[in-house]
Design a protein around this nucleic acid. Structure first.
Length: 750
RNA sequence: UGGGGUAUCGCCAAGCGGUAAGGCAACGGUUUUUGGUACCGUUAUUCGGGGGUUCGAAUCCCUCUACCCCAUCCA
């Protein structure tokens, strides 16, 4: 993690520091109705990570309130994912279904309080009564049922005496609420379904909005962290807990943006479609962004965690470039994994001047990886190299084998091409080459300069392996449907050749096939008879990139033009005020506009005007500073009065205080409502304009930052603000900024 | 369209009135028996647009724009 804290950690730290909670308790609450994907990994890292970082704990809870979609196989997958990532949950796995009895009791309590009712409208009617985003809904006539009737009905619902859809339990909140979620949300619905865990005892099941907040409360959760789409639900979350009076040590919900990655999909629906349609082999298909998929592909838990840490946590919807994920796995594997040689597309090479065979000792790790180990590498007359590593008509900057250009066989000798053998169609089928006996790796005395070293295998001892190459599953950067799948996302090479140590010694399960990428022995299909390797990720390849640059694609640089919308017209009264402000009072039109359009502001202004005859100064501070305070408050809720603002403005006008100090004083007034004159007096905030006092401070600042002085004099005039800021800070804001500016300018000249 | 959110480099993302962090990507260069790694350097006079307040604004005020979420008996 970088030094900065994300907003969630900032909140947690504040809550801990203020004593709101003694210990942080979080939870990861998936619904067991699908396989977890890397978006869940982000949530896991956040929830478990925060708990760990602040010495608290995190629960794993299955949010299983919908019996028709949930299944044990998903809870297993969820547990696996958390475990594989290396996190530990507190005690056993929790289940919302375990709280069903408690939840039922809370519902009964709400009914008794008159805060919930049994509604018997049909599903369509409920929808209709809910209204639309612009129109208020209307309440069902059943909302008038008595507490007794509601109690009896709810009991019948629980006992299975009602049909599905016949009744629901709803909270009695507000059918006209602007927040649609608050229009008497459903709390319970009837389901005569078998619950994978609770069995058949229940006939009513709680809805998310009712169950989740209470489950959090029951578990003593402090910070209930979820994704952005639940922002509107927070109002119900708070309503339920507050209405039930569960306010003592209650949790609060905080939302962050879910993870998106380009060229893939994260929606449960699309993932399920992919699996069901057979476009992928299963939930653990290595092309899928599921945890099981990444795991099978060969990603390490460390790489996933580092990735999640690297992308940050914020509230802006965003799509992370898949390159960032690929970086995380390369970066992790680079220092961990042995290097071996594998030839994917073999081209035979016969060494015409070599006889017999030998065994080379080759290190598994390059010099820059601090790990030890080597393997025996057989070498003889017949070898295979990668077809790509030989060229008859080499492009510019081609570093590999050509008719004229020798190349080193990694860990072995330098070879020179002598003859190219072609078949009837003109395809190259074999290279006849000479090796240089005095060029053996490590004891090279040949003096031959080569431009690169290439991988190879010994024909006699190489093993045949299956290699599965994966490309992005979708061809569209932001795929919308299965239409966008990449038809070419899987390439299976049945006859790749690999050096024997990989198969015989099995020094690891992940390897770097030199110059190609990182590969993983498939945990499912690998057998001794048919070894299978999955390509995790390729190496960075600046060569193939370079070749592509020959045909540069010029993106048309279209800058979206901003459309200026129309400002709504002022009412007659507002217009009259505006005219007076700009005319008689000489206010800036913008300030006048702000004041005139806001009744709270204009009345505040009018009152203050009676106390002080500097209309412009008053208007500025009211339209800017006071406006902020009045955004979510009424005038009577303010601690300060128009008269006090008038006093403040007077002090600015007679230069007792600078505008900077005025801001400070204002902050104080907002909090305590004291007279500005008192605040100024108590804190000694009188402005200092005497150069004799300021000059030494400037000297000090300049002496402390000689490099910045130099930079400024070299032309970095942006640093001017830095110096002013430093001097102001040193005087706790009391120095007259205008005087400081003038003095610094003078000082910095030479 | 009511309400709730969000906008800082190609992609993430710090910043909370005083020098526009960092990572990924890209581009140069050095080292290299992996066209890998590592290392060095370059890449935002500008923060969605326009105004305003201020000595000083990405940060405060006004306003406009764009995008996301909400009208499942899903979570």
């Amino acid at each position: 993690m970088s030094e900065h804290k994300d907003f969630l950690r900032t909140i947690v730290e504040e809550d801990l520091a203020s004593g709101k909670y003694e210990e942080v308790v979080t939870r990861f609450p998936p619904e067991p109705n699908g396989f977890p994907h890397i978006g869940h990994a982000k949530s896991i890292c956040i929830n478990f990570g925060i708990a760990k970082a602040y010495g608290g704990h995190c629960n794993l809870r299955m949010d299983d309130t919908n019996p028709t979609t949930e299944d044990t196989k998903y809870v297993e997958a969820l547990k696996d994912a958390v475990e594989w990532l290396g996190f530990k949950w507190e005690d056993g796995v929790r289940y919302t279904s375990d709280y069903f009895p408690k939840l039922y009791d809370y519902a009964v309590e709400l009914i008794k309080m008159g805060e919930a009712y049994v509604d018997s409208l049909s599903e369509e009617e409920i929808r209709e009564y809910r209204g639309t985003v612009t129109q208020a809904g209307r309440r069902s006539k059943y909302a008038q049922r008595s507490v007794e009737e509601n109690l009896a009905l709810f009991e019948q619902m629980k006992n299975g005496e009602c049909k599905e859809g016949e009744h629901v339990l709803r909270a009695k909140i507000d059918m006209g609420a602007a927040n649609m979620k608050l229009r008497d949300p459903l709390l319970y619905r009837i389901r005569h379904a078998h619950h994978y865990r609770a069995g058949d005892v229940w006939h009513v099941y709680p809805m998310y909005d009712f169950a989740h907040c209470l489950s959090d409360y029951i578990e003593g959760i402090t910070h209930s962290i979820c994704t952005l789409e639940f922002e509107n639900n927070r109002a119900i979350y708070d309503w339920v807990l507050d209405t039930l009076g569960l306010t003592a040590h209650r949790p609060y919900q905080h939302e962050f943006a879910r993870l998106g990655i380009n060229y893939t999909v994260m929606s449960k629906r699309l993932l399920l479609e992919l699996v069901k349609s057979g476009k992928v082999s299963g939930w653990d298909d290595p092309r899928l962004p599921t945890i099981a998929g990444y795991r099978r592909r060969g990603y390490t838990p460390e790489s996933i965690i580092h990735f999640c840490d690297s992308i940050g946590v914020a509230k802006a919807n965003s799509t992370v470039d898949v390159a960032q994920l690929e970086f995380a796995i390369r970066d992790d594997l680079n220092t961990k994994v042995p290097r071996v040689m594998c030839v994917l597309d073999p081209l035979k090479v016969t060494l015409i001047n070599y006889e017999g065979s030998e065994v080379l000792d080759a290190s598994y790790y390059p010099e820059d990886v601090p790990k030890e180990g080597s393997r025996a590498l057989p070498f003889s007359k017949e070898l295979y190299i990668e077809r790509e590593d030989f060229s008859l008509n080499p492009p510019k900057d081609y570093n590999r084998l050509t008719l004229e250009q020798p190349v080193r066989l990694r860990h072995a000798y330098i070879i020179t091409c002598k003859e190219v053998v072609k078949d009837a169609e003109g395809n190259i089928v074999e290279i006849k080459a000479e090796y240089h006996a005095d060029s053996k790796s490590g004891v090279d005395t040949s003096g031959i300069k080569v431009k690169s070293a290439i991988q190879w295998v010994d024909a006699a001892t190489a093993k045949i392996v299956e290699v599965r190459l994966y490309d992005r599953l979708f061809q569209d950067e932001a795929p919308q449907s299965l239409e966008d799948v990449n038809p070419d996302s899987l390439h299976i090479i049945k006859n790749a050749l690999i050096e024997p140590a990989v198969i015989l010694d099995r020094p690891d399960e992940r390897f770097q096939f030199e110059r190609q990428g990182y590969f993983y022995a498939d945990p499912v299909d690998y057998t001794d008879q048919n070894p299978v390797f999955n390509k995790i990720v390729g190496l960075k390849d600046s060569w193939s990139k370079k070749k592509k640059i020959d045909t540069p694609i010029l993106k048309p640089q279209v800058k979206n033009e901003q459309i200026e919308g129309e400002v709504s017209a002022m009412s007659v009264a507002e217009q009259a005020l505006f005219d007076r402000y700009t005319g008689e009072l000489q206010l800036n039109p913008e300030v006048a506009n702000t004041l005139a359009r806001d009744a709270k502001l204009s009345s505040f202004y009018e009152t203050a005007l009676g106390e002080c005859d500097s209309p412009i100064g008053l208007a500025n501070i009211i339209a800017n500073e006071v406006a902020r305070e009045l955004k979510e408050k009424e005038v009577r809720e303010l601690k300060f009065t128009p008269m006090q603002i008038a006093q403040l403005v007077k002090m600015i006008e007679d230069e007792t205080i600078s505008t900077k100090i005025a801001k400070q004083v204002f902050e104080e007034m907002v909090l305590c409502g004291e007279d500005p004159t008192h605040i100024v007096e108590a804190k000694g905030l009188v402005q200092i304009s005497d150069p004799a006092f300021i000059l030494p401070i400037i000297d000090e600042v300049m002496a402390k930052n000689p490099d910045n002085v130099e930079k400024y004099r070299a032309g970095n005039t942006k640093l001017f603000g830095f110096f002013v800021g430093q001097v102001l800070k040193a005087t706790e804001g009391k120095a007259n900024p205008q005087v400081v500016n003038a003095l610094i300018e003078e000082k910095l000249k030479h």
